[in-house]
């Protein structure tokens, strides 16, 4: 009878096994194919329309459209990741396998991030087209892709955490869209002005824009700047949501 030991290698192997299972599971339902096909068709057509109008070798319009699109589409990926396990009672199966909550959470997160990366890779033909047509700023494009991946990472971690709090997928989806909208809207100048106008002395709008809002950090990437503060913002929030998720999963047992 086998009694294997627990090592760092087996920890990573466990995460990888969960990642592979979850990635396959994303394609077992229609969610992942619809996300990839519909999302890419929409994003690429939005960009191509802008490209022909402006006639510039610039991918900024694509990344501008990408942020709200991710806020609406990524929760569709994460909404089922825990809520469905609870509905189908497979949560108990996870909790009796020799895996820690962290391994399961990271495996699920990396599988969703891989899908988001695949989605971003679907826009690479545009980069190829721009390089064939002229000499676009490749450094700026690379920084923009990095920013998009950082934003996706934060939104996926938030969605995954919210899915662990909900029994049904629709609630998980709506909550995740709301949180994503808060992260993006609080950085918008109009929202900042409205919030500041409501309580001029409190500086709520500016405060939220400075410490909570993702849009200014995302826009820094779009300008070609990879700032430490922006990386810290996205990766920090990702870590916060993943930690909260592992903790929530431990508490989900009756």
């Amino acid at each position: 009878m086998t009694t294997p030991t627990h090592t760092a290698a087996s920890t990573f192997r466990g995460i990888d096994l969960v990642r592979r299972r979850e990635f396959r599971a994303l394609f077992e339902s229609a969610v992942a194919p619809v996300f990839l096909i519909a999302g890419l068709v929409l994003l690429n057509s939005l960009y191509m329309n802008e490209f022909f109008l402006a006639a510039r070798l610039d991918m900024t319009p694509l990344f501008d459209a990408l942020a709200p699109l991710l806020a609406v589409l990524l929760p569709a990926i994460t909404m089922r990741l825990w809520a469905e396990e609870r509905r189908q009672r497979t949560f108990e199966l996870w909790m009796t396998l020799p895996l820690t909550p962290w391994q399961v959470v990271l495996g699920k997160f990396v599988s969703a991030l891989t899908l988001a990366a695949l989605f971003l890779a679907g826009t690479l033909p545009i980069v190829f087209m721009l390089t064939r047509l002229g000499d676009p700023d490749l450094g700026r494009i690379v920084a923009s892709y990095l920013g998009a991946l950082c934003l996706a990472s934060m939104l996926l971690a938030a969605g995954l955490f919210l899915s662990s709090l909900c029994r049904d997928q629709i609630t998980a989806y709506l909550l995740a869209v709301l949180v994503a909208a808060l992260f993006l809207a609080t950085g918008h100048p109009r929202v900042v002005a409205v919030l500041d106008g409501m309580a001029p002395n409190a500086g709520v709008g500016r405060g939220l824009a400075r410490y909570f809002a993702s849009l200014p950090h995302y826009e820094a990437f779009l300008r070609g700047r990879i700032e430490l503060g922006a990386l810290f913002h996205f990766l920090g929030w990702t870590a916060v949501f993943l930690t909260a998720n592992a903790s929530a999963v431990k508490r989900l047992r009756p």
Binding site: R21, A25, E28, Q88, R89, T90, E92, L93
Partner: peptide, 8 residues
């Protein structure tokens, strides 16, 4: 309840 990963 013998809940298994049905899609697999």
């Amino acid at each position: 309840h013998n809940a298994l990963f049905d899609g697999m």
